[in-house]
């Protein structure tokens, strides 16, 4: 019975496929019997994965996208960090020419609806369907996913920065000076549990954060980003 159900889900998922007018980024953590349509894989047990679905432009060239995944897991601890940037934010992070005030404006008429989504389930059976569903697949057990869905409008991709982290390392009060003023980059847990943290940015904010995180995004030590000042303008917190 269970085998038949999983088989049916695999067939169903493979028939649906992914939307061609959307860019997806996401992370999955499963402790389950799981069929993941985004990666086209099936799994029994523990699985941690990062996925990206990036269709080409109409003319066959590629969109500007930077992505980085860092997984550091031991028996007792786990540190997972995934970040990515698209559009002008990606170009900004990859740039080595720093010029003050070179934070380009993008065409704001080209936007579609941007969606940041998270998903958590502990279930006897869990099925997600639909071409636009970033959590497409089936599972029995524990499933935790995050996804960023960026629509492609008129063959253009808007500027976005996103970072997802899962960290079990404890925060030490003596390290309090190590945090930064840009979204607090310290992801260690204050509760000795598991800390889930998500950061998203759009427009100019995405360019600033991508520029600030240029080294981790590009894995190039001398990556400078396109914005000269390491410290972005002091944000207005609400």
């Amino acid at each position: 019975m269970k085998r038949n159900s999983i088989g049916a889900a695999v067939v169903l998922a493979s028939l649906i496929g992914c939307a061609k007018n959307t860019v997806y980024f996401g992370t999955n953590t499963n402790l389950a019997i799981d069929v993941d349509a985004s990666s086209g894989s099936a799994n029994i047990g523990y699985k941690n994965s990062q996925f990206a679905s990036i269709p080409p432009k109409d003319d066959g060239t590629s969109f500007s996208i930077l992505g980085s995944s860092d997984v550091d897991v031991s028996i007792s601890d786990m540190v997972i960090e995934e970040e990515f940037a698209t559009g002008l934010a990606a170009e900004c992070a990859a740039s080595r020419k720093t010029k003050k005030g070179d934070d380009k404006e993008e065409d704001k008429t080209q936007y579609g609806t941007l969606l940041f989504a998270s998903y958590f389930s502990v279930s006897l059976f869990d099925v997600n369907l639909g071409a636009d569903n970033p959590f497409l697949g089936a599972s029995i057990g524990y499933k935790r996913s995050t996804a960023t869905v960026i629509p492609i409008k008129n063959d253009k991709l808007r500027s976005v920065y996103a970072k997802t982290s899962v960290n079990t390392l404890p925060y030490e009060s003596s390290d309090s000076g190590s945090t930064t003023n840009k979204g607090n980059n310290d992801t260690r847990t204050h509760t000795k549990g598991i800390r889930f943290k998500q950061d998203f940015a759009t427009g100019r904010a995405s360019q600033y954060l991508a520029s600030y995180n240029a080294k981790s995004l590009t894995k190039i030590d001398n990556a400078a980003g396109c914005i000269e000042s390491v410290s972005p303008p002091v944000p207005t917190k609400k």
């Binding site: 704001k108 936007y111 609806t113 941007l114 969606l115 940041f116 989504a117 998270s118 998903y119 958590f120 389930s121 502990v122 279930s123 006897l124 059976f125 869990d126 099925v127 997600n128 369907l129 639909g130 569903n133 959590f135 920065y161 979204g183 607090n184 943290k197 998500q198 950061d199 998203f200 940015a201 759009t202 427009g203 100019r204 904010a205 995405s206 954060l209 944000p235």
Partner: peptide, 23 residues
């Protein structure tokens, strides 16, 4: 979202305006 679940399920969606960062 399309699908079904037997068990516990929690989902969240965020729609964000431009020139902002969300944590």
């Amino acid at each position: 979202e399309q699908g079904f679940n037997l068990g516990f399920k929690s989902q969240e969606r965020v729609y964000l305006k431009n020139d902002l960062s969300l944590s």
